Amino acid sequence: MSIQHFRVALIPFFAAFCLPVFAHPETLVKVKDAEDQLGARVGYIELDLNSGKILESFRPEERFPMMSTFKVLLCGAVLSRVDAGQEQLGRRIHYSQNDLVEYSPVTEKHLTDGMTVRELCSAAITMSDNTAANLLLTTIGGPKELTAFLHNMGDHVTRLDRWEPELNEAIPNDERDTTMPAAMATTLRKLLTGELLTLASRQQLIDWMEADKVAGPLLRSALPAGWFIADKSGAGERGSRGIIAALGPDGKPSRIVVIYTTGSQATMDERNRQIAEIGASLIKHW
């Protein structure tokens, strides 16, 4: 067993022997301040990774656009098919120029040779490549099948209805392509620590998230040296922004954090800054 596999296998073990965790309302004060600064709703939840206990939450059962955070769930569904012998990570998928959609920095470079399922998941999570996500959605049967996968996990809230990039439209009061912070946090925890996926697939999923290259201005910008984070960000229309993450000190994750916002007129930089400040408060009061 590799060191990384050992780390993920012992996530519940280490967490069980940690000192009790206590909620700190100071972080919620910052979440509410972010709402004021952005002029928009902000949803927040913080779960203990081992027990699933909610440590703090704000608007945990209000719907927010998922945006690209759905790509972690998508690759979880792909990995479940791999575990069941219905898919192979090494299978190569070929596609054409007509398949390319807006923001496809990886797939646009491989029109000639195609990409493997493993490479597509890596591109979808680490670079948020939209064509990679659409190609992977095709392998599982489309958005409705991802929703069905989530329902089978016990998540009857999260739903995907459309493809990239239309799913980022974020129309107010439109339930399409949305989740709730509580539902997303619980589902992410199941994917990373539950028995739904094999140990190898859980490790692969967290490795992809740990290698995320496009979430630097968010929670990662607030992390002290030595902290662990595996995350996936999302951005959408109407001032929408979000991030889902597993993080913790001492090089291992111990909490799940989900943050979503929508309806702001603020710039992307300002949305990023507010999420980073929430992260800084979380870490300060850990």
Rank of each mutant, 00 (worst) to 15 (best):
Q204W: 07
L28F: 09
S57C: 06
P143A: 08
G39I: 12
S68A: 01
D174H: 04
E277K: 06
R81F: 07
G39R: 08
E237D: 09
N152D: 14
D113R: 09
M180T: 06
W227K: 00
A266S: 12
A123N: 05
T139S: 15
N173T: 08
R159W: 14
R91D: 09
M268P: 10
L120S: 04
T126G: 06
P65I: 03
H285M: 07
N168A: 09
T186A: 12
A123H: 04
T179V: 02
Q86L: 05
S264H: 10
T69W: 00
S51W: 04
K144D: 09
E46K: 15
K32V: 11
V29Q: 12
Q204F: 10
Y260S: 03
K71C: 00
T261H: 15
A246T: 07
K284R: 14
S128N: 02
V42N: 04
N130R: 02
V157N: 10
D212F: 02
E62G: 08
A246L: 09
D161S: 08
D269Q: 14
H24P: 05
P65W: 00
R189V: 07
T178P: 02
A230H: 01
R91L: 05
L28S: 07
D113C: 11
S281R: 09
T147H: 06
I275M: 15
L136Y: 01
L247W: 12
C121S: 04
L205I: 11
M67C: 12
P249F: 05
R118E: 07
A235H: 03
F228P: 00
F64L: 03
D231M: 04
V258M: 04
M184I: 06
C75L: 05
S96Y: 09
V82A: 11
E102F: 08
R255Y: 02
A34V: 10
L74S: 03
P253W: 09
P217G: 10
K252P: 10
N152F: 10
G263L: 13
M184N: 00
T107H: 02
L111M: 10
K284T: 09
E26N: 10
Y95R: 00
L167F: 02
A225W: 12
S281T: 12
A40F: 04
A245T: 12
L89S: 12
R202C: 10
P249C: 09
A170M: 10
E108V: 15
G242D: 00
N152V: 11
T131N: 04
A183M: 14
P224E: 08
S68N: 03
E62D: 07
M184W: 01
T158Q: 01
V214S: 09
T116F: 05
H151D: 10
A182W: 06
L197M: 14
T107N: 04
A40P: 03
V78H: 04
L167W: 01
A148R: 09
A34Y: 15
P224I: 04
R220F: 03
K32N: 11
T126S: 07
P181C: 12
Y260G: 01
R92P: 11
A245F: 03
S122V: 09
L282S: 14
T178F: 03
R271W: 04
T138C: 15
R162M: 05
G76T: 11
P60C: 15
T112R: 11
K232L: 00
E210H: 14
G43S: 09
M268A: 09
D207P: 02
S201Q: 15
A235F: 03
L197V: 05
G234Q: 00
H151L: 10
Y95A: 04
D113W: 06
P60F: 15
C75N: 03
L192M: 12
E26M: 15
R118A: 09
L167H: 01
M153Y: 07
R159V: 13
A124L: 04
E61Q: 11
E277R: 06
G216C: 13
